[in-house]
Computed example of a mutant assay.
Amino acid sequence: MTVLKSNILLLAIFAVAGILFSGDKNMAVGQPCQGHIEGLITQCALFVQKNVPKTIPSPGCCGVIKSVDIPCVCQHITKDIERMIDMEKAVFVVRYCGRQLAQGTKCGSYTVPP
């Protein structure tokens, strides 16, 4: 069962990476999000997944969070991504790592609370 969960998580990480790297058709060509998106996925996925307890992110995750254009990433969060990650945990991780996410900011279909 643990192997199955690990395989599903790995598949989800690659799906998120593909979505983020492929960009949005409404976004201008050549305008990807700045920062280490692959690192964001590999370092932080554990801290934002659904159905696991909320935990404090690792220093590695926070290091990546500090380098990524969070508002840009938020613009590329799709319903498919939201099925895999807990948006409340994602906001917690971003804020814990010292990045500001203003109240009312849209991140996918999620609106950041105060």
Rank of each mutant, 00 (worst) to 15 (best):
C74S: 07
V3R: 15
Q100P: 03
G39H: 08
V29C: 06
V52T: 11
H76Y: 02
K66M: 07
I77L: 11
A17K: 11
P57N: 13
K54C: 06
A28Y: 07
Q100H: 12
I77A: 00
E82C: 02
H76I: 02
D86K: 05
G63F: 04
C33F: 05
Q43I: 03
T111L: 07
V91D: 03
V29Y: 07
P53V: 15
A90S: 13
P113D: 09
P71V: 06
V48Y: 00
C44P: 04
T42Q: 09
P32I: 06
Q31L: 07
C62S: 10
M87F: 02
K79I: 05
G30V: 09
Q43C: 09
C61D: 11
L10M: 14
T111M: 14
V73T: 06
I77T: 05
L10G: 08
Y110W: 11
I77G: 00
R99A: 08
V48N: 02
I70N: 00
V3A: 15
E82M: 06
Q43H: 10
T55H: 10
S22H: 09
T78P: 01
Q100L: 10
C97W: 03
C74D: 09
F14D: 10
A15Q: 08
K79N: 08
N7Y: 07
G104W: 11
N26C: 09
P114G: 10
D86T: 07
V68A: 06
Q43S: 10
